[in-house]
Design a protein around this nucleic acid. Sequence first.
DNA 1: AGAAAACGCAACCTTTGGTTGCGCGACAGT
DNA 2: ACTGTCGCGCAACCAAAGGTTGCGTTTTCT
Lengths: 114, 114
Amino acid sequence: MTDRSDDEELWAAIAEPGRRRLLDILLSGGPATATALAADLPFTRQAVAKHLAVLERAGLVEGHRHGREVRYAVRPERLDVAARAMAAVAARWDSRLQAIKRLAESIHRAANQP
Amino acid sequence: MTDRSDDEELWAAIAEPGRRRLLDILLSGGPATATALAADLPFTRQAVAKHLAVLERAGLVEGHRHGREVRYAVRPERLDVAARAMAAVAARWDSRLQAIKRLAESIHRAANQP
DNA sequence: AGAAAACGCAACCTTTGGTTGCGCGACAGT
DNA sequence: ACTGTCGCGCAACCAAAGGTTGCGTTTTCT
């Protein structure tokens, strides 16, 4: 296990499609157990448990024991950090793309008006 | 709605940290070859080539042969789609989180006014 | 013509997402 | 109190993906 920075661990956590779906379900349905979550997902309880472990290590989710079951809930502050990170990348790309677009337009104008 | 497999291929492409870095470099430095890109990245030319292949299959990047070298460039329209997808997920999470926050506040108010 | 640069292909290793199988603690019914 | 069941955790195993090294091929340059 290479020790990653906090940021990279967050990204690694949300990069996985399955984990994003998991987070979606937790967000819309509220806290749930691994078995309950697995019922709404195309993989087994164990796979879900592994994903939950990853998410918990990244701090995105928190599990508490209630008798024989462990209920997992999202940690809003942390997920907010993750959401902002994603939005930031999207924004960076967008600004770069607009710069490219402007450049292309200016070249086009220059070519048409010598 | 948009083609689902297409969407998932896009996500798979941008989910990888290395590929995001690759796109960043291409965006800021303009078109480049696999060897040139590898110089700015912590892995080998072959690894970069594989990533470029994935990105090209996802339509995010386009490679053209110029003599003995292949120069890769970002396809702005496609990357824009990807950026919007990321922003959309971030926004969805954000709205869910705000709903949770509002709910918590209303409970808090109810508890303080019996 | 011959050396060097850039690429493609193939074999291989490691990590990771996913599965099956099993054993153990917690609950519920009788 | 006993027995069956439910939910979990652990371990072995499998397949795909990221990454590396090694080698052969094509293009360029002198």
